[in-house]
Design a protein around this nucleic acid. Structure first.
Length: 762
RNA sequence: AGGCCCGUAGCUCAGUUGGUUAGAGCGCUACGUUGACAUCGUAGAGGUCAGCGGUUCAAGUCCGCUCGGGCCUACCA
């Protein structure tokens, strides 16, 4: 993160004097964990109980619902016949896990299912083991699935566990914590693995003629996120946290706007998850982690305390004898959930907590929205009454150039350090910012990064050029009077102001991509491509530069602000260059990091000059294009009926000529007579005519080009004429829109006329 | 099963509250440059905005459906 230029308060992270930052097992963090545990326990929100949990037989621990990934698998559905107790008939039940039938204790049907109402009070007999299975009626059963009868295995299925509780059914554990069959499964099966038992049960059923049907069945199987093993639902004594109340608080915080999710398309997902949340299993049977602060007395009492001394005291002093501590540890996310305030010293009322809590924004990937973000929000609201941050900016996942998730096995992992080494931290940062558009993942493409590295070069070279040419007197100026400057200077200052306004607005709404792109286009497309070119005559003392006061000051001033605007995205390059700008000391004596972030400058906004300069830039672009297409001598005439525009063009004539490298440029208000063919094109009110001779030989190419353009033009004119003849359009569209169309039509017709003329002439 | 997102140029993506010849970067072609540019500049080719229907004077943009892709949550034994 340091190499990427993250502006963290690293010194703050060194408070333990070991340059280690915070570690979740530090005394300080552990203290918060214990405190929260004790508080929630005393409030009755943390409790210990025997429940059906997600058990990972490989790791030998319980895991939470979030740590179970369900994957679709091709499985088998077995239909099994269970005879009635009174041998008057039989019922057929279905299962995807035959081995669990050894733990069946009932058969259920829907209470409103008339097909089976008569079975109530009766029982079926479990094949193989001969156990008596009473029939129970429960709404959990889907009448339309299979036969409408469900075998109930309370200790190996979450739904069956609930049914069992409702009907007072016993549970029988036939699978143990290592995933092997228990003695309860019977001597034929005890000790077998789940898979072995499944095969043997099916074999036995077949032999007994109890197997009715075997069919392929696609279903979802829960796998442990950590080990990849199928999760075994097992009954086990664990610690749970009732988060329903906190979840409600977290839900409300988003609903009433105290917490903003960005983009807000996550709101519904947030609501859905929190509204349906279930108790969180927080104990783990692993040795790494925060040990649960609970002790057990010899006589079976449970004591929850901050430490052993307190536990002994609570247990009644030394008389209590040997206390044994619960060996379990907490889910790693339990301590992570406390992060926003535990790092700041909570439960003490520290100065840090007062200063930094709540924070402004959390930036993270959506993949840990529930694991981490939701839990931080829940614990903060419950324990401090405040949201931990006011906004959560959820980014996409960084993927490879093809959009494939990076993974070691696929070998498509891009190492940030290697990227930094190849492209520079600034280019890496810029790429990440530019690609971070809401609701999308981030495909990291080295080619694109190379493009942004080139942008860095561009910034470097532009600044270097400026420093070498502005002259010794030039300084960054905070009080430039735009009105006293020439048009190009007024234009770039106006554009700078608009850019600053836009970038600030985009940052405000977390659109880092749009902010970055806007800056890219300002710097390269407006500052480098146009302003620096426009400023060259003035800076180099060439013709056209005489009436250009303070051009050097303007260039430095624009660079200063452009670098400051870019600094959050490209910190290294901008700092390096900014340090060299004459006059930057007045903005900040030490570093660009601490210089104010530029905002719009209303005094520099100049729509009139922007309009004139847009016309000039548009005309210059078209002139270049016409010259490039036809290869004619670089002699051009410009014409405009507007006296103001004519005056402006006359003023900028040397500049225009240099921009297009013209040998000759005529500017007049004289329209070309029809017999001269009229202007070749009309751009922003400026008629353009190339006066140079055509080289011989490529008339055919000219004609082809003109015909192609004419074709497109005719279609567009027809469409526009039709539209302007539409009464509905004229009546309902806003007048400015209609006006714009009329103007566009007039221009297109002019263009068509000149194309016709040149075709005839040619 | 419910929900969310995406489908725009060869590739990766923008496209504000609907306003009319749809943009960028990279790639490609031509020309020019090496006196800011680890090249850069100028110009150019390239798109029936997944499809169908609807609302509207006007739809890439709003609504519905279909197809294709991704994800989240839950889960039928």
């Amino acid at each position: 993160m340091r190499r990427l230029g993250t502006s963290g308060n690293w010194a703050y992270a060194d408070t333990d004097g070991q340059n280690a930052g915070y570690f979740t097992m530090d005394a300080r963090m552990s203290r918060a964990v214990v405190e929260v545990f004790v508080q929630l326990y005393e409030a009755g929100l943390i409790y210990r109980g025997k429940r059906l949990v997600n058990w990972d037989p490989v790791l030998g621990t319980a895991v939470s619902d979030l740590e179970v990934d369900s994957d679709e698998e091709d499985g088998t559905l077995w239909e099994i016949r269970y005879p009635s107790e009174d041998s008057t008939g039989s019922v057929v039940v279905a299962t995807t896990r035959p081995e669990t039938m050894l733990g069946d204790t009932a058969v259920a049907f829907h209470p409103a299912d008339e097909r089976y109402a008569h079975l109530l009070g009766k029982a079926a007999i479990l094949p193989i083991l001969g156990r008596r299975l009473p029939f129970v009626a429960d709404e959990m059963v889907d009448r339309d699935f299979g036969t409408g009868l469900v075998k109930i295995t309370p200790f190996h299925d979450p739904h069956d566990f609930e049914v069992g509780k409702r009907h007072g059914l016993p549970g029988i554990a036939v699978i143990d914590k290592t995933g092997r069959m228990t003695a309860e499964a019977g001597p034929d099966f005890a000790g077998l693995s789940r898979e072995e038992a499944r095969g043997k049960v099916v074999e036995r059923l077949e032999a007994e003629g109890a197997l009715v049907k075997v069919e392929d069945h696609v279903h979802n199987v829960g796998h442990s996120q950590r080990s990849g093993e199928p999760i075994e639902p097992l009954v086990s004594t664990q610690w749970f946290c009732d988060v329903s109340g906190m979840a409600k608080l977290a839900l409300e915080a988003v609903q009433d706007g105290r917490l903003r999710l960005v983009p807000d398309s996550w709101d519904k997902t947030w609501e859905h998850w929190l509204a349906n949340i279930r108790p969180w299993c927080i104990s783990r049977q692993i040795w790494w982690g925060h040990q649960i602060p609970a002790w057990y007395t010899a006589d079976g009492r449970t004591i929850v305390a901050h430490d052993e001394a307190e536990a002994i005291e609570l247990a009644g002093g030394a008389a209590a004898g040997g206390l044994s501590r619960d060996p379990d540890v907490l889910d790693t996310w339990f301590s992570s959930a406390l992060w926003p305030f535990s790092t700041l010293g909570w439960p003490e009322e520290t100065a840090d907590l007062a200063t930094f809590f709540p924070t402004d924004v959390l930036i993270t990937g959506f993949d840990i929205l529930f694991f981490w973000v939701a839990r931080m929000v829940m614990t903060s609201l419950h324990l401090t009454g405040e949201v931990p941050f006011r906004a959560v900016h959820l980014t996409g996942l960084v993927r490879d150039a093809e959009g494939v998730k990076m993974s070691k096995t696929k070998g498509n992992v891009l190492d940030p350090e290697e990227l930094v080494a190849e492209f520079g931290a600034d280019a890496v940062r810029f790429t990440l910012a530019a690609l971070d558009s809401p609701g999308r993942d981030i495909p990291l493409n080295p080619d694109q990064m190379a493009g942004y590295r080139a942008f860095g070069n561009k910034i470097w070279n532009a600044t270097r050029f400026a420093l070498s040419r502005v002259g010794d007197e030039a300084r960054i100026s905070s009080d430039l009077d735009s009105k006293a400057l020439a048009a190009p200077e007024r234009w770039i200052l106006s554009r700078l102001s608009a850019t600053a306004a836009e970038v600030n607005a985009k940052l405000e709404i977390f659109r880092f991509d749009e902010a970055a792109n806007r800056l890219y286009h300002f710097f390269w497309g407006e500052l480098c491509d146009w302003y620096i070119e426009l400023a060259k005559p003035a800076l180099l003392g060439e013709s056209g530069g005489a009436s250009r006061p303070r051009a050097g000051d303007v260039l430095l001033t624009v660079l200063d602000r452009a670098l400051r605007l870019l600094h959050p995205v490209m910190p290294f390059l901008t700092e390096e260059l900014w340090q060299r700008l004459p006059g930057r000391e007045a903005i900040h004596p030490e570093t660009i990091c601490l210089a104010p972030y530029p905002e719009s400058m209303p005094a520099w906004d100049d729509p009139a000059v922007e309009e004139q300069m847009d016309a000039l830039i548009g005309a210059a672009t078209r002139v270049r294009s016409l010259l490039a297409e036809t290869g004619r001598e670089r002699k051009v005439g410009l014409w405009t009926p507007s006296p103001a525009l004519e005056a402006f063009l006359l003023e900028q004539k040397p500049l225009f000529a240099s921009l297009c490298r013209l040998e000759r440029l005529d500017v007049s208000s004289r329209a070309w007579p029809a017999q001269e063919g009229g202007p070749e094109d009309l751009v922003a009110g400026i008629g353009i005519k190339v006066l140079g001779e055509k080289p011989a030989g490529d008339e055919a190419e000219d004609r082809r080009r003109a015909e192609k353009e004419l074709e497109k033009l005719d279609a567009e004119i027809e469409r526009t004429v039709h539209q302007l003849g539409d009464e509905q359009f004229l009546a309902k569209a806003p007048p400015p829109v209609v006006e714009k169309r009329r103007a566009a039509l007039a221009q297109m017709e002019d263009r068509r006329a000149s194309l016709h003329a040149s075709l005839q002439a040619g």
